[in-house]
Nucleic acid binder design. Sequence first.
DNA 1: AATGCTCTCAACCGCACTCAT
DNA 2: AATGAGTGCGGTTGAGAGCAT
Length: 257
Amino acid sequence: MRHVEDESIRKGPWTEHEDVQLVFYVNTFGDRRWDFIAKVSGLNRTGKSCRLRWVNYLHPGLKRGRMTPHEERLVLEYHSKWGNRWSRIARKLPGRTDNEIKNYWRTHMRKKAQESKRGSSPSSSFSNSSSSSSFCTNDPIVDSMPMTETKERSFYDTGGIEMVPNSRPKNNTTLMKYAKDDSEEHEGIYSMDEIWKDIDLLEIDDGMKPVFDPYSEIMPSHIWDYSSINSFWTTDSGQEEFSTYMAFPATSERLLG
DNA sequence: AATGCTCTCAACCGCACTCAT
DNA sequence: AATGAGTGCGGTTGAGAGCAT
């Protein structure tokens, strides 16, 4: 246990430079080893914080902008089915994160709840069935739902360095499990293959934009060139060496400039 | 123009789970 | 089997933007 949660651990909003740095290290080491990335990157953030930033903001496959009516319908549908299983719902909406959906639900459903209160007939304004009124966390239906966690692989899980043989053999079983569960779940609108295909297509469409394009709905995907970076990866024993060897500033200039 | 309110969303926290040792 | 580290998830909070008065 690390009691030395030193005061130098940064919190709060991320700076652009931190973002660039994180993207670089995630593309280098994959989006699994967050504690390691946090250490090696010199970001002074916790691994959790790094993961969250990546998953909710920096991941190339993320959609920006408002939910489409279709997505709204899906959220309603899956929430009525699964309750507050945000990450699970998010897997059904490519490009959307659990956080995003959670926020969306809170604001929109709270609004609807208020409206329906004013309309004096609770839940009557909801388009969906029984449990659709379960915007409240105390909802017995939701809370009593069994944790039938079919471990699906989330869309924002790039797998990163795991795709490279020997990079983290321990987790092969986990990946196998994800794959299996995906195939077992047939009610999905999208298969994981389709999701990944979508992301690939987006990347192609987007071209090789070197920096974030604030006017684009989809975040650019080729911030970094994976293939050229993968060759850096060797073994755990070489990690410290790697971090000191890495010439990061040059790359960050390229991105920020 | 100033103020207050509402909405949105990024980020944190705590707990639970998985896996390696 | 027990334990600790790492990771994922859901709930919550707070800052900033936008809107109404």
